[in-house]
Amino acid sequence: MTDTHDTPRTRSLRLGVAGPVGTGKSSVIAMLCRKLNEEFTMGVITNDIYTDEDARFLRSAGVLPSERIRAVETGACPHTAIRDDVTMNLLAVEDLEKDFAPLDIVLVESGGDNLTATFSPALVDAQIFVLDVAGGGDVARKGGPGIARADLLLVNKIDLAEYVEVDVEQMVKDAQSARDGRPVLALSKKMPDTVEALCEWVRQLHAAHSRGVHTPTDPGPMAPHFHATDEGGYEHSHESGDSSGEHAHH
């Protein structure tokens, strides 16, 4: 990376949060900011479909100084903004890192789109994919690049499971089998142990990133016939991650 401001001192852990509309991405980000505020200096970039509503929600939640929450407008193309044309987001992240240096973590929230949208490794170092039980118990089994290969899959709002008749255990099990051993966390903001598990995952990721042992991987595009046992899919995602180059850490 040639940009002078992208030095190790100012380079944060860039963590993407993706997932379908209404699964609780903004809430997860608010939760992380609130819980990790004292350990890490954080910033947030939101990607909205319409205007800067998510940024405003987070500002009004008061979890961070409001100037550390910035919105990128994606022109009705939230998937483009995090995947094929990341320039706006990349500049927004770098500006935030520069203006509030040193930041430990920048969270990038994708615009709620669909199951196929994942972050490019040119933009983030790692990504969380958020599902919720209200979306139906079979969503995890259906898979998709985010569900199968994001660094972490969250099954959110598990406190609602009984009302929507979803078997959380089964949903998590389905997710695990779709993810080839990558982590899955069941989450409810009403269950402190699940919140702590999420925070702990972020802490370990940050530690690995700081030590330079974390390598961004790419969930890759939707693979129509992907199966959990398909080693090729796994290898492929590694390749993409390595070839991105830009965010490998020196």
Binding site: G75, V86, M88
Partner: peptide
């Protein structure tokens, strides 16, 4: 227009 320079977000 596919040049990744963020043009897609604008309606001019």
């Amino acid at each position: 227009g596919r040049l990744p320079a963020g043009g897609y977000a604008h309606s001019g």
